[in-house]
Amino acid sequence: MSSATLQEPAGRTRPAGPPAPRSRSRSVNRQTAAAWLLALPFVALFLAFTAGPVLGSLAMSFTDMKQRDLRTPFAVNGVGIDNYVKALSDETFRKAAFNTAYFVIVGVPLTLIAALAAAVLLDRGVKKFQSLFKVAYYLPVITSIVAIAVIWRFVLAPDSGLLNTVLSWVGIDGPNWLASKTWAMPSLIVMAMWRNFGAAMIIFLAGLQGIPHTVEEAGQIDGASSWQRFRYLILPLLRPTILFTSVTTGIGYLQFFEEPLVMTQGGPLNSTISVSMYTYQQFGFGNYGLATSMSYILFVVIAVVTFIQFRLLREK
């Protein structure tokens, strides 16, 4: 075969091959630079208003900074972990930690159980006016704590309160709920459950509606009772939803602050004071170093509790 037959026909060009490595590298670099340029406003705001203050507060927790040091913040003295030791040895802080643990251990399960029960009723039982019930249950979540405090002060008033009036009808003399060391914290737990279970209910309802009806129908064909279908079929499929609601509810309850501040001011005799409220008080007293150390103790507790929840409730 002659060399002429191997030549390309006149007017025809070879197809373009892949770009050279150097050209691809320049293209990737341009895309990376454009991405960082677009992200620059967020990064700047994040560093200035989130990362910066967080790192600054962490450094503050290892100093003796007080209100008088605001004019000369770099003239404070480092104290190492003394603030953390002082916080953990503070009797009031330990009382606040106990109250917070009590609030979380009792309040989170009650809230999740009430939310899941309401979601099941809406998904399986209530068909008419379902949207109305959703709005009614969710309304306390978006209602101001001040308005909720007014309602619950009327309900829990010792003499003319709605609850004690109802109890008097059956011959029971109700206590002064918010002024009792025994009943003040349970009253706040019930109020918090009523206020917050609507958010978890909406999430549970979405999880239930995402489960195919064929799953329950298969269990019914196999002879499983309603409880067995719920226990062994529905609940395992709701595990991711339960994880999400328990984590978000637990984090919120570990930081509970508004309920005791508005309803009881931490009383009676610090029986309802929380870690967040005591930290807030220390900031008000001008003990900035001590207050930030309390904040980071709470942060570590939240991280540990969240990790435990992920370990216990993760999908198997």
Score class of each variant (00 low, 15 high):
residue 7 Q to G: 09
residue 270 N to L: 14
residue 131 S to P: 09
residue 240 P to C: 13
residue 219 G to M: 12
residue 158 P to S: 03
residue 158 P to I: 07
residue 147 A to R: 07
residue 257 F to E: 00
residue 124 R to F: 11
residue 30 R to N: 08
residue 137 Y to S: 08
residue 91 E to H: 05
residue 263 M to F: 01
residue 57 S to T: 15
residue 266 G to D: 12
residue 297 I to H: 14
residue 25 S to P: 02
residue 47 L to F: 05
residue 5 T to K: 09
residue 210 G to K: 09
residue 245 T to W: 04
residue 194 W to H: 07
residue 195 R to V: 01
residue 90 D to Q: 02
residue 284 G to H: 03
residue 153 R to T: 14
residue 279 T to K: 14
residue 284 G to Y: 01
residue 123 D to Y: 11
residue 20 A to I: 04
residue 165 T to R: 02
residue 45 L to R: 06
residue 100 T to C: 02
residue 194 W to D: 04
residue 132 L to F: 03
residue 234 I to V: 15
residue 198 G to H: 00
residue 247 V to G: 09
residue 63 T to E: 00
residue 74 F to W: 14
residue 292 T to V: 04
residue 175 P to D: 02
residue 189 I to L: 02
residue 22 R to F: 04
residue 53 P to V: 10
residue 96 A to T: 08
residue 67 Q to C: 02
residue 60 M to Q: 10
residue 152 W to I: 14
residue 152 W to R: 01
residue 108 V to L: 09
residue 294 M to W: 07
residue 44 A to Q: 01
residue 222 D to W: 13
residue 102 Y to R: 15
residue 106 V to D: 00
residue 304 V to G: 06
residue 40 L to V: 10
residue 159 D to M: 05
residue 143 T to D: 10
residue 184 A to S: 13
residue 147 A to C: 11
residue 270 N to V: 09
residue 284 G to F: 00
residue 265 Q to G: 12
residue 257 F to V: 06
residue 144 S to R: 09
residue 6 L to Q: 13
residue 236 P to I: 00
residue 294 M to C: 08
residue 185 M to Q: 03
residue 32 T to Y: 13
residue 283 F to R: 03
residue 281 Q to A: 14
residue 43 V to L: 15
residue 294 M to R: 13
residue 311 R to H: 07
residue 44 A to M: 13
residue 44 A to P: 00
residue 65 M to A: 14
residue 187 S to D: 08
residue 197 F to N: 00
residue 74 F to V: 03
residue 278 Y to G: 13
residue 137 Y to Q: 02
residue 82 D to N: 12
residue 243 L to D: 01
residue 169 W to L: 12
residue 19 P to E: 13
residue 66 K to I: 03
